[in-house]
């Protein structure tokens, strides 16, 4: 491919119009799945033998933790696409994914801490999963802080894309070293996420919530990216028509 700035494949206007169609369906799917999953998990799933009702927090802690990690990889991959093919659209997706991922990491940390109270008696426990989540939060904050600190938008995009890539290389190493560190210092205690048995009555509501969270993530990412695109393309005609005519 010639080393030059070819007509970008994912032009922002095409992305904006295409997603107009998907958004309502995604929103509907996430609302339905999340409400069904919540009611099912809170009200109808049986109590856990050891932990009692506090384990019901698993239905939001686990999906949030999944998405916090998956979100970082989504951010890094769209950053990499932007770096390699110089696509404005993928940089916008990356910039939108950072705060969403950070919020999800915060949610999983918060729910993990609150869940720790009934389980271990204190809010903060240096459990391997929670510690890795904390470091992941720092990684997110690092990327967001860097993209705010650089004045020129193009340079900020490239710099935070590169930092996100460096982060993805380090995440497996960090998780493994924290796990090794945790088994070294902590005698075997109840691991937070493995409740005694994942029998179907708990698994299906969890599965519903996970899919619901994924739909919600996709919807939120798309809407944040669209808002960012409008700001970035505000000098173009299509953005102004969208803003003027928009709801």
């Amino acid at each position: 491919m010639a080393w030059q700035w070819f007509h970008r494949l994912g032009s922002p206007r095409w992305f904006y119009q295409k997603t107009n169609v998907w958004l309502p369906w995604l929103a509907l799917a996430s609302v339905v799945l999340l409400s069904v999953g919540t009611v099912w998990g809170l009200g109808f799933a049986p109590e856990d033998a050891k932990q009692g009702n506090s384990y019901r927090i698993i239905f939001i802690h686990v999906p949030a933790a999944f998405l916090a990690l998956a979100g970082y990889y989504i951010m890094a991959i769209s950053g990499a696409i932007g770096l390699i093919w110089k696509m404005k659209l993928s940089f916008a997706v990356m910039r939108a994914a950072a705060p969403i991922g950070a919020v999800l990491t915060f949610i999983s940390l918060f729910t993990g801490a609150v869940w720790g109270k009934p389980t271990w008696g204190t809010y903060w426990v240096w459990d391997a999963r929670i510690t890795s989540m904390l470091i992941l939060l720092f990684l997110y904050i690092g990327v967001m802080a860097l993209s705010q600190a650089v004045s020129r938008e193009q340079v900020a995009d490239k710099a935070s894309a590169l930092l996100a890539l460096v982060g993805t290389v380090n995440i497996p190493i960090i998780y493994k070293s924290v796990d090794w560190w945790f088994t070294l210092h902590q005698p075997a205690t109840i691991r937070l996420t493995e409740s005694s048995s994942i029998d179907p009555s708990m698994f299906y509501p969890l599965l519903t919530m996970i899919i619901g969270f994924y739909c919600m993530y996709a919807w939120t990412l798309l809407t944040h990216t669209r808002a960012l695109l409008l700001r970035r393309e505000v000098r173009t005609q299509w953005a102004q028509q969208e803003l003027a005519g928009g709801k």
């Binding site: 690092g142 960090i174 070293s177 924290v178 560190w181």
Partner: peptide, 16 residues
Amino acid sequence: LLALIVMPLYVPVLIF
């Protein structure tokens, strides 16, 4: 900012 960026990457070295 440099400390914030680099700190998470230092964790494995510190642990081992």
